[in-house]
């Protein structure tokens, strides 16, 4: 049984994980990261968008859900910089308020996935045995489906709503992190300081919380940053299909879904929300690409 477990986490992966874990401690990655102009650009994009979203109530000229049919489908003009949608709502205000939903949902999906995967991945890696087999079994089954198909199926069965969309995505994404965390825990577990802690009579919980978790957190946060762009795209894709945010909520994917019937007539309805998604995802990808360079010496530019 033990042999099989070790075989699954190939030595190569263990070593590279170990390298990464050590790197987080040693490398002053701020320094390296800030040498990468594109990564800085990414960070600036993300921060500006977050600030815009936070200040939306003060910056938005109109109420994002206030219907005004007399202003319907106006092209961008002085009064409505991004134009208005099919219900006469100010598109600029909607895109601005959309920052909140479109960023908060992926953020919570990521947070919940990480919390669940830390719990299950640590249990699986640290305790081993039957629990490990069970958790890995579940993971392998979930991996038998493409992630978007799985999320689509779950969201579809639960019915279209933002909460169900989040449940579906968390149910899909924890798997990846849990697998990685399990591998890290197995590799950390073999360190001598863990043995020393055990010899000193430290409880299992204490070993996990004090000695194992701190080693896991930083690489996982980096991984999460790398994935944030992808998750934003998944959320907006499912919203675009009509499975996420429901009207009148201002969410970029849902706005594009609504724009679909009008986009030949009113292309601005599709242009601005899409640009917003592109920009924020690009921000996270730029930052993530920079982070990856810091962590993987092979890819240093």
């Amino acid at each position: 049984m033990k042999g099989e477990v070790e075989m699954e986490v190939s030595e190569e992966i263990q070593q590279s994980l170990q390298r990464n874990i050590e790197k987080v401690d040693k490398v002053d990655f701020n320094l390296q990261l800030f040498n990468d102009k594109l990564a800085i650009l990414g960070l600036i994009i993300i921060l500006s968008i977050v600030i815009l979203g936070a200040l939306a109530p003060y910056l938005a000229p109109y109420d994002p859900i206030q219907v005004n049919l007399t202003n319907r489908l106006q092209a961008p003009n002085q009064e409505f910089v991004f134009g208005t949608d099919h219900l006469g709502r100010c598109l600029f205000s909607r895109v601005l308020f959309g920052v909140r939903t479109s960023l908060a949902i992926p953020f919570f999906v990521l947070l919940a996935s990480i919390l669940i995967s830390i719990l299950l991945g640590t249990m699986s890696g640290y305790l081993g045995g039957k629990i490990d087999e069970l958790i890995m079994g579940v993971i392998n089954i979930l991996l038998a489906l493409p992630s978007l198909v799985l999320a689509l199926a779950i969201a579809g069965l639960l019915g279209p709503s933002l909460l169900n969309l989040m449940i579906a995505l968390v149910a899909t994404y924890w798997v990846n992190y849990a697998r990685i965390i399990r591998g890290m825990v197995i590799s950390i577990k073999q360190n001598e300081y863990i043995l020393a802690a055990k010899a000193c009579g430290a409880s299992e919980i204490r070993i996990i919380v004090k000695h194992i978790l701190p080693n896991i957190i930083s690489p996982i946060i980096v991984l999460a940053t790398l994935d944030m762009g992808y998750i934003i795209l998944s959320v907006s894709s499912l919203s675009f299909l009509g499975l996420g945010a429901q009207p009148p909520t201002a969410e970029w994917g849902a706005m594009l879904n609504a724009a679909r019937s009008y986009f030949q007539l009113a292309p601005w309805l599709m242009f601005f929300p899409g640009m917003a998604i592109l920009l924020v995802v690009l921000g996270f990808n730029l930052l993530g690409d920079g982070l990856r360079d810091v962590f993987d010496p092979n890819e240093l530019v």
């Binding site: 675009f240 030949q264 998604i277 690409d289």
Partner: peptide
């Protein structure tokens, strides 16, 4: 060329496919 490739790759990975599709149609 390498840098251009990197920027194009980052852009390509950031475009929401449904939006790209609609833009191409338009």
């Amino acid at each position: 060329y390498d840098h251009l490739g990197r920027i194009l790759a980052l852009l390509g990975a950031s475009v929401p496919s449904f939006w790209l599709g609609m833009m191409l149609i338009y």
